[in-house]
Design a protein around this nucleic acid. Structure first.
Lengths: 319, 319
DNA sequence: TATATTTATGTAAGCGCTTACGTTTATTAA
DNA sequence: TTAATAAACGTAAGCGCTTACATAAATATA
């Protein structure tokens, strides 16, 4: 047995693709053999236009479940071959209406017995070897519309990642991850300042050596997010560099990371956590507020060295 | 309901193609979303190479039911990405052996849980909505291997044509058909001579006006073949311009046409039919011989004006 | 009424496959 | 052993689709 058949559901897409390629080639062969200047893919177009008399490009695309450029390409060919006539819709100048030319109608007439034969042959074959096959295809498509394999996998992957979250402390090997995470986040929302560059280029000396901590949230070997706690004074620390990779957002992971930060601050015997944020960052600010952080006007020991954050928040820790 | 679904078996190929396109796009999305540098179509290659350790290009092509250029293209990409290693087979210098590199193996390892998930998700979906679907695909493929739609249609078309054969006499509107048929046939086997050109350019004056006849075999509006009977003298006529369109050969149509010619000669009160042929034209000569034509050394009233035919045959008609 | 958004279409570039053809090496026949 | 044939692979061009982007007209919104 061919290996591609052995694979079964394991390579479902490839298998079906292979199958469809064979079918389409078979069809092309028929027209070629009969010396008819007709491509298999024109067939659905002809049938649709025959039924609708006059139809626009995007209508064709949606009825045939194709993209509109694909439709444009086909109708341009058919127009060149004078099988269809196209023109603007008088009521809507954007729309291009397509109808069969007399030549197109004649060709459809000529080919219709052949099409009938193909239909009968296909029906016979399916009835004999695979009754109900097309209904199954319909059902699969409906099921995939409800929830595609892609969505299922995404959910599964999400669950796996969430179930395997771990925190690790900074090590030299994470330097580039730390930089990338923060650069991506800054590029997304704000400008990177010189102060950012200093911290990011040497987090070890700028944070760790100054009695600070950097943590990474990892899962299944993948870095998910990071944050740092920097010492302000014996009573307070600053939470910063708090970011989660874009593709993992909306999974309530920020909450987990914030909880971990608070726990760490407790362990480190701080009495309060301060942070600087920007009102623009609504999700983050919301997250902090929900967990009890409160906006405070300013703090003597916490100056915004980047000159962009306009919001200082504080959480008092009750040990 | 989408029109393409309404069409059902009428557009079976297109329907399945559409389905497979959707599936493949769905797969591509998974890898893209997960930020993995992996294309869906590589999957079957990876699985096959994993299983076989070392395998050649055409072996891959045959196991995956693909053409070898398609395989070459994929493995060139995979080699560029250092996921596979290829090299010549020491025992057969034509063959290019493919195996996974350590990097390729690592990637396969990394992706295998994802692949498992896809497999499970697909199995679940199929079990729920379309149990036995892949077995049906197998059966359809087997059935089509035995006798493809193409072959079925070809047979049907053949039968239709054979059942509707008719003979019509020459009319002006058939001039170009007459010319085309004969030119095609001559180009296929022999050189076109000046004498041919004279006859073909004006068959009306060259044949009909000289008490000759031209017949066409037509079916369903299509010209299938032609022949002419030219008067040699009161007792004998010459059968010539006997040809059948390439795509209709091998259908025993020549026999029908020859029979018709003999019948016509009888009706015209000839006592013998002569013809000039060439030993190169085996099928034709065989046909004539079977029907009773016999090679004769020469005939005083029938000279070969083209200077190429070296075989004169004769059938004596018993009225 | 001016502006923003949506809709309909077109264009370009690219991907994955095909067919057609060419080259090299192996195998078979003479 | 030589010559013809077959097999393995490569390359080029083309087709049918995609995504990404652009443009213009219609519609919604302020």
């Amino acid at each position: 047995m061919l290996f591609i058949k052995e694979l079964g559901t394991f390579a479902f897409g490839s298998r079906i693709k292979n199958f469809s390629d064979t079918l389409m080639r078979d069809m092309a062969k028929i027209y070629k053999e009969l010396n008819v200047d007709f491509e298999p893919r024109w067939f659905t177009f002809f049938q649709l236009i025959l039924k609708r008399k006059e139809i626009s490009v995007t209508q064709i695309a949606s009825e045939l479940n194709q993209t509109h450029p694909a439709v444009v390409q086909v109708i341009n060919i058919l127009e060149k071959k004078k099988l269809i006539i196209t023109g603007k819709d008088k009521n809507d100048n954007r729309r291009r209406l397509v109808k069969l030319s007399s030549r197109g109608k004649a060709l459809a007439e000529e080919l219709s017995p052949l099409w009938e034969d193909v239909d009968v042959a296909t029906k016979e074959m399916l009835n004999e070897h695979a009754p109900g096959f097309l209904q199954m295809v319909d059902k699969i498509e409906e099921a995939l519309k409800e929830k595609s394999i892609y969505k299922k996998i995404k959910e599964k992957t999400k669950q796996k990642i969430i179930n395997n979250l771990e925190f690790v402390e900074y090590e030299e090997k994470y330097l580039s991850d730390f930089q990338k995470l923060n650069e991506d986040w800054l590029n997304e929302y704000l400008e990177i300042t010189d102060y950012d560059r200093i911290i990011l280029s040497d987090p070890y000396n700028e944070i760790i050596k100054k009695e600070g901590h950097i943590f990474f949230l990892v899962s299944e070997g993948k870095i998910i997010g990071t944050y740092s706690l920097q010492k302000i004074n014996n009573e307070a620390c600053e939470l910063s560099k708090f970011t989660i990779k874009k593709e993992y957002r909306g999974w309530k992971i920020g909450k987990r990371m914030l909880e971990h930060a608070i726990q760490k601050a407790k362990e480190l015997k701080y009495e309060s956590i301060l942070l600087l944020t920007h009102p623009k960052l609504k999700e983050a600010t919301q997250l902090y507020r929900k967990r009890g952080f409160e906006v405070i006007p300013e703090h003597p020991d916490l100056t915004d060295k980047t000159g962009r954050c306009s919001l200082c928040m504080q959480l008092v820790i009750n040990q």
